[in-house]
């Protein structure tokens, strides 16, 4: 067995998976509270990557940043997460809130519209070309190895650990704070929560803020790991993020992370091992989604839904 290939795909799968996990968290939170599939989420992720890029440019570019590389990365994360959080709140306020009591199909179509709007606005303003993050010059990519076959770079370690760190933070916010309690109450029964004095609008806005900020972090990680971003990157990533959320069990936070890593690993190993994998990896992810739906429609960690009229 070719261990070097195996470990290579393992590490790249974990890296990809941690990005998908961050996107999936946003889907799963919004779905848990609003029962809404937020199609625009993938595009928020793309906007996050671009905000990060422009912050980097404003700091002097990857070749001569005004501050040291890692600090620049930290600033990029902060600004992009705040900006995209605001974007998410805005999307919810104007595209979804007026439709909260509409038939189910209306907000879905509205979300599709927002997605197309964002994607093409990016195309109009920033063009279709690739933008370079230039991670090599920015932070100096180093590769560590354990034994002869296992290699991992510092950017990959950063991506995986930031993703896990943000997830733990999110879990703490949801389980320990008053707002988190309000979120759980809203998710459980919106009307009852409102009657108990919870401001539903604020809780939903906060949920969108958190989800979008996490997506922005994912977008920057993508830029750091792959070195390049482009204005159409949101669509496929959004699909996979949602797949991750579904595979893990929608509405469940640990499920989203688990699903994210599963999708990332599937994609990486399909690329390495399956026939036609280098171009058809996404088809294998799709197959996983279908199989998952047929075997366990509620996902790995999801609880069965009881339909009510």
């Amino acid at each position: 067995m070719n261990w070097s290939l195996f470990f290579g795909e393992l590490v790249s799968g974990l890296t990809l998976g941690s990005i998908y996990a961050l996107i999936a968290l946003g889907y799963t939170m919004v779905y848990g509270i609003l029962k809404l599939l937020n199609f625009a989420h993938g595009d928020v992720y793309m906007v996050g990557a671009f905000v990060g890029f422009f912050v980097l440019k404003w700091l002097g570019g990857p070749l001569a940043p005004a501050v040291t590389g890692w600090l620049a990365v930290a600033i990029m994360f902060t600004v992009a997460m705040l900006a995209c959080g605001a974007l998410g709140v805005g999307i919810e306020r104007f595209a979804y809130r007026p439709l909260r009591n509409a038939p189910r199909i209306a907000p879905l179509i509205s979300a599709l519209g927002v997605s197309i709007f964002l994607q093409n606005s990016a195309l109009l303003l920033w063009g279709p070309q690739f933008r370079d993050y230039d991670t090599f010059d920015l932070v100096g990519v180093k590769s560590y190895h354990i034994g002869t076959n296992f290699f991992i770079s510092n950017v990959q370690i950063l991506t995986i650990s930031v993703s896990i760190g943000l997830t733990i933070l999110l879990a703490l916010v949801i389980s320990r704070t008053r707002t988190g309690k309000a979120m759980r109450a809203t998710s459980f029964d919106r009307d009852a929560a409102e009657m108990m004095g919870i401001s539903i609008d604020r809780v939903i806005s906060f949920t969108f803020f958190l989800g979008s900020a996490l997506a922005a972090a994912g977008g920057i990680m993508f830029g750091l790991v792959f070195g390049q971003i482009f204005s159409l990157m949101g669509f496929t990533a959004g699909l996979k993020g949602f797949t991750a959320a579904v595979v893990g069990g929608i509405g469940s936070i640990p499920g989203a992370v688990l699903g994210g890593f599963l999708i990332g690993l599937t994609e990486a190993f399909a690329t390495g091992y399956l026939p036609g994998g280098s171009v058809y990896a996404n088809l294998y992810v799709f197959a996983l989604l279908i199989v998952m739906f047929l075997i366990r429609p509620t996902g790995l960690l999801g609880s069965p839904v009881i339909q009510k009229v």
Binding site: F94, A95, P98, L99, A102, A106, P107, I109, S110, L112, G113, V114, S115, I116, F117, L118, Q119, N120, S121, L124
Partner: peptide, 13 residues
């Protein structure tokens, strides 16, 4: 596509 996307959101709302 921007106009169509905006149109979908506006009509739905």
């Amino acid at each position: 596509l921007i106009l169509l996307g905006g149109l979908l959101v506006v009509i739905m709302n």
